[in-house]
């Protein structure tokens, strides 16, 4: 039922309208998407100090050499991997559980749905500020609660010790983006035909069995997509870390985005920052290719 399968004459006649309709997109895309990316790539071959734009100079692959020789780049890379992995695993587990919970046929479930999906729309600035406030080691409510519950004796320095800071940034990320997983899974759950469950029931499968045999296979596809998407996004996140820890303490929560920003702004080495960006783009292109491969979606354009 797609365009090419319909044999109408009027179609060719007004292809021009079609092109007219796509022109604004083409212009906007060229100006605001393609050009910045090209510019980012170009910059990565230049030494560029934003305070002295006229002294910009082509230096070949020098910026890439700089970052690949910089221990902090690799440290950022590694930390980004840890951050991403932990975030994704937690988001997926919690997200699926929540979706199953919210899929229960209970009265008033839509209220819970609303509340549990809510974090997704909370601005990162807001949650970062709130977490700074709640995790304040001396006067924060989290340490106070843990202490009065007898779980800890000493204050935990959530944002001032490297491992805890990493944990806190992961928590922020999981809190904010688990709803994304939940929404996606929930949407899919709602489309699973009930007959499948009925059949399983007839076969005498228990609740957990039904989940493994019926639900999970149905969710496989959506989960793959969600995991790929979220991995790419999480790996490149900037604000979630910058606003909570600025990459600290030390450089213990640096990821590539923070590293790039620091190079561009603090060090005024826009070229080096751009080179990091190019590396990030390579990684995400690789991720996108996997996605397209998995779903072969060039072929189902006509679906």
């Amino acid at each position: 039922m797609s365009a090419e399968s319909s044999p109408a004459d009027w179609k060719k006649a007004d292809t021009r309208i079609g092109i007219l309709f796509v022109i604004p997109f083409a212009i906007a895309a060229l100006l605001f998407m393609v050009y910045p990316v090209i510019e980012a790539v170009r910059l990565s071959f230049y030494e560029h100090n934003p305070l002295r734009p006229e002294a910009s100079e082509f230096i070949g692959l020098e910026n890439f050499r700089t970052i690949f020789e910089d221990a902090l780049f690799w440290k950022s890379f590694q930390q980004a991997a840890v951050w991403t992995f932990c975030s994704i695993v937690l988001q997926t587990l919690i997200g699926v559980s929540l979706a199953l919970l919210l899929h229960l046929p209970l009265r008033g479930i839509s209220i819970f749905r609303g509340l549990l999906l809510f974090p997704y729309i909370v601005p990162t600035v807001v949650i970062a500020l709130i977490m700074q406030w709640m995790l304040n080691a001396e006067i924060g409510v989290v340490n106070w609660s843990l202490k009065s519950a007898g779980l800890i004796d000493e204050n935990i320095y959530w944002l001032a010790t490297p491992s805890m800071a990493m944990l806190s940034t992961i928590f922020l990320n999981v809190w904010k983006y688990t709803p994304f997983v939940t929404i996606c899974v929930l949407a899919r759950l709602q489309t699973i035909p009930l007959e499948l469950y009925d059949a399983a029931k007839v076969d005498g499968a228990g609740g957990f069995r039904r989940f493994l045999d019926v639900t999970l296979p149905q969710l496989a596809e959506v989960l793959t997509v969600v995991v790929i998407f979220r991995t790419i996004w999480t790996f490149n996140k900037f604000e979630e870390i910058y606003l909570l820890t600025k990459g600290g303490p030390g450089t213990s929560t640096f990821n590539l985005a923070i590293y790039s920003f620091e190079q561009s702004v603090a060090n005024l080495r826009m070229g080096v920052g751009a080179a990091v960006g190019v590396v990030m783009m390579f990684l995400l292109f690789a991720g996108s290719l996997i996605y397209m491969r998995v779903f072969r979606f060039d072929e189902d354009d006509t679906a």
């Binding site: 998407m33 490149n236 900037f238 826009m270 751009a274 990030m280």
Partner: peptide, 12 residues
């Protein structure tokens, strides 16, 4: 484009 993080776009 959807995948490209803002940190890459912001300075260009």
């Amino acid at each position: 484009g959807y995948m490209i993080p803002s940190i890459i776009l912001v300075f260009p």
